[in-house]
Design a protein around this nucleic acid. Structure first.
Length: 553
RNA sequence: CGGGGCGUGGCGCAGCCUGGUUAGCGCGUUGGUCUGGGGGACCAAAGGUCGCGAGUUCGAAUCUCGCCGCCCCGACCA
């Protein structure tokens, strides 16, 4: 297969668009792969779509290999589908009506559609089922960003598994986990399986695949010894030890006029921030709770939400006054009639805490002796924490979530009455799992990981073309023969037959990033050879056109 | 939704503060000459509702108000 650049819609740009910051955003636009049509809305141009299709095909092969059946559900769906599960209220849903005024929703995921279909499953004899499709998702994202990093419309591969029991789900989940690892590996993408926070969806297991990148919305925690990876939101780093002063036999009141922050408190008392505790009153449902973390730690909203199994919000100034009789800067767990959730780090030792009296704190506050609390891991892991596996130092890195897999259980099947009869003739809800990969986001992540100052360096598995043949003036004929030889050897070839300067063609070739560049120029006319250059390493060698075929067998 | 920034030929920008004939520059595009292994030179040319709408003014890209769009930070987020 040979594509001629002179006839391709391949608009490359010398400069990146002004509003592009992420490397993938800049390079994909400059290389003529994608163009924007609105916030979070992008067109894939011929080269971009070729890459997208190659990623799609890798996913298809791997999901087929674990028994997936490819199908297709629509994106436009009747609103009642979403009323069935109550997910009609999800804020990122796009709502619309048809000309008759009937309400519709653009699917942002397909559990509802697939479960609707799964009602046709009648018997345990038909289980398990693994269904998947590549389909358009629309999400009214509050903030799309970064080119392909966060889109309002995108194509996702999503699988849905239906099993008779939890053991079946576990097996299906495990197969997907392994398939995903193979998919990302084949795409040339470094991605790690991490525990993800399922937040308000709560309870069920959820794992994410994070690809470390230069730009992204997630943060990957990784141990320096590579034995622990986690999303920062769920990471279980161990805090460094607190620097505590000598313990006190009893509480000691200390006046702290004008002290409102931990930083000021530590400075005023001449102690480390880690010797203090930070009190954060929150409201969940209709109860007020005091969350307590060490002074040098930050509360992890995701962990606290998981602990509560529901959303929460910071308490208002009025609520704080009413419950504690003091302002936000002087709160503590001692002597209050409020439930206290304390971070594990505070289980041992004595800390300075607010006295619930403006301008006063307490020294020597000790859990168990001075207050009762429920202990939980509610602190945010930070770089420098110790690894929970080996004690090594944890590092933090920007990342993109390219895949997410969930054990859904029976929430959707119960809502839809998607049941089957088991061996004993009992009616049971299908046990479900769902598994997603964002294709465009995967593409962006690959570029984030595989580029240099000159452009993209595509892994050969997803490159738009295997070989980029550059025809310099006078050598068009030999370039064409080289392209034909490569094509005959099964390679896809981009033949740059445009009437452009050599520098321009080389710059475009580097930018577009095909793994191999073959150059035919004046020198070729003399010796019949071409220059074969490896995009990644820059290594170059001269080969006879006749030998090109076997070079790439 | 809160904060900040931006909107001027295809791309990147200047002009705006301090209103005044034909709105400039670089790149790109078209035609031509020379050139030809890392974005070459010269000549000629095309291409603009200055985001939209009101207002102020003799006169608005420029000042005022409103709206829209886009980007970044935050909030939000299966």
């Amino acid at each position: 297969m040979i594509a001629r650049a002179s006839q391709l819609f391949l608009p490359t740009l010398r400069e990146p668009p002004a509003d592009a910051e992420a490397a993938s955003h800049q390079l994909l636009v400059r290389g003529g792969f994608i163009r924007q049509i609105g916030a979070g809305l992008w067109s894939f141009l011929p080269l971009g779509w070729r890459v997208h299709m190659r990623i799609e095909q890798i996913i298809r092969e791997e999901i087929n290999a674990i028994g997936g059946q490819e199908m297709r559900a629509p994106t436009l769906t009747p609103a009642e589908l979403w009323e069935t599960t109550g997910r009609i209220d999800v804020p990122i849903l796009f709502h619309l009506t048809d000309s008759g005024g009937r309400p519709f929703v653009l699917s942002w995921t397909h559990e509802e559609s697939m479960t609707f279909l799964a009602r046709e499953i009648q018997s345990y004899k038909q289980l398990p089922q693994v269904w998947y499709h590549f389909s358009t998702k629309d999400r009214d994202e509050p903030r799309p960003r970064g080119g392909l990093l966060r889109l309002r419309e995108f194509i996702m591969k999503d699988s849905y598994t239906f099993d008779a029991d939890v053991a079946g789900l576990d097996a299906a989940f495990d197969r997907h986990e392994k398939a995903y690892a193979r998919i990302f590996e084949r795409c040339g993408l470094e991605a790690y399986l991490v525990e993800a926070e399922s937040g308000v969806m709560g309870g069920k297991s959820s794992l994410g695949f994070l690809a470390p990148t230069g730009s992204g919305e997630n943060e990957l925690i990784r141990c320096e010894n590579s034995d622990y990876f986690a999303d920062v939101e769920a990471a279980r780093g161990k805090p460094r030890p607190a620097e505590l002063p000598e313990p006190l036999a009893a509480l000691e009141r200390v006046e702290t006029p004008g002290v409102g922050t931990i930083e000021e408190l530590a400075a005023f008392l001449g102690i480390a921030e880690s010797a203090t505790s930070k009190a954060l009153p929150v409201v969940t449902g209709d109860r007020l709770v005091l969350a307590l973390v060490r002074g040098d730690d930050r509360l992890s909203p995701e962990k606290l939400e998981t602990f509560f199994e529901r959303a929460f919000r910071p308490a208002t100034e009025g609520e704080i006054r009413a419950a504690f009789g003091a302002g936000g800067g002087s709160l503590g767990p001692v002597g209050v009639d409020v439930e206290v959730i304390a971070d594990e780090a505070l289980r041992e030792g004595q800390y300075v805490a607010g006295a619930n009296e403006d301008g006063w704190h307490l020294r020597g506050v000790e859990a168990g002796r001075d207050y009762e609390a429920t202990f939980a891991d509610i602190r945010q892991t930070v770089a420098g924490d110790a690894c929970p596996e080996c004690g090594g130092k944890l590092e933090i890195q920007t990342a993109i979530e390219v895949g997410h897999i969930f054990k859904l259980g029976t929430f959707h099947s119960e809502a839809f009455g998607a049941t089957f009869l088991d061996e004993d003739g009992r009616e049971k809800p299908l046990v479900m799992g769902s598994y997603g990969i964002g294709l465009a986001r995967t593409m962006a992540a690959i570029v984030e990981q595989s580029h240099d100052e000159n452009g993209i360096v595509w892994p050969s598995s997803v490159a738009p073309y295997d070989v980029h043949v550059v025809a310099l003036p006078g050598a068009e004929e030999i370039a064409t023969r080289a392209a034909e030889a490569l094509s005959a050897a099964g390679k896809s070839v981009l033949l740059d037959d445009r009437d452009q300067r050599a520098g321009e063609k080389f710059a475009d070739a580097d930018l577009i990033g095909c793994p191999i560049r073959v150059t035919a120029g004046k020198k070729s006319l003399e010796d019949g050879k071409v220059d074969v250059r490896d995009r990644a390493s820059g290594a170059e060698k001269r080969l006879d056109v006749a030998d090109l075929g076997k070079e790439f067998q």
